[in-house]
């Protein structure tokens, strides 16, 4: 592996080697026109915004899947009968019938990206298609709740 220490040495490598080259580069994220993020308050080059609707849903009493003629027998029993085909029957019926459970539904998901590069103080290298890379990670995450 040919090793160079700074980004401005990368040009020499490109001149000497046959393309395409696979390289590993490190530096600080920078952009001429960063995005001003509303929630995090950060200037960023890639922003993914998700909106989810949160709601409570009244838990409905589940219907026993046993045949009606077997239902009474199931209710009196301390454990599911062999005649009951619904293995979750007792778990479902042990919950209070008026309980509420929290649900979330995705409303939208938008991603914005501006041209950006990595800079190590000696030079910079534009990065394209980073979101499709394995293990690409957003380094800051913040949520806001609007009632």
């Amino acid at each position: 592996v040919t090793r160079v220490n700074r980004l401005n040495d990368l040009a020499q490598l490109l001149d000497a080697e046959r393309l395409p080259l696979v390289v590993t580069i490190s530096g600080k994220v920078a952009s001429e026109n960063p995005i001003n993020c509303e929630i995090t308050g950060l200037k960023s080059v890639i922003v993914e915004e998700r909106v989810n609707k949160l709601y409570l849903k009244k838990k409905e009493e589940e219907k026993c899947k046993c045949a009606i003629k077997q239902k009474e027998k199931c209710k009196r029993a301390t454990k599911p009968q062999k005649t009951c085909n619904d293995a979750d029957y007792w778990t479902l019926h042990s919950e209070p019938s008026d309980s509420w459970t929290l649900h979330s539904k995705s409303i939208s998901c938008n991603t914005k990206e501006v041209p950006w590069y990595l800079d190590d103080g000696t030079d910079h290298v534009h990065v394209v298609g980073a979101r499709g890379a394995t293990d690409f990670g957003y380094t800051a995450v913040r949520s806001k709740f609007d009632e």
Binding site: V22, S31, K57
Partner: peptide, 26 residues
């Protein structure tokens, strides 16, 4: 029966100034 609580907005960002290492093809 539903009670709407509100909207949760989540931002995931790659901020300016973050130190990053990338592997890619030139």
């Amino acid at each position: 029966d539903k009670k709407i609580l509100g909207l949760k907005r989540t931002e995931r960002v790659l901020p300016v100034g973050a130190f990053l290492t990338v592997v890619g093809e030139v």
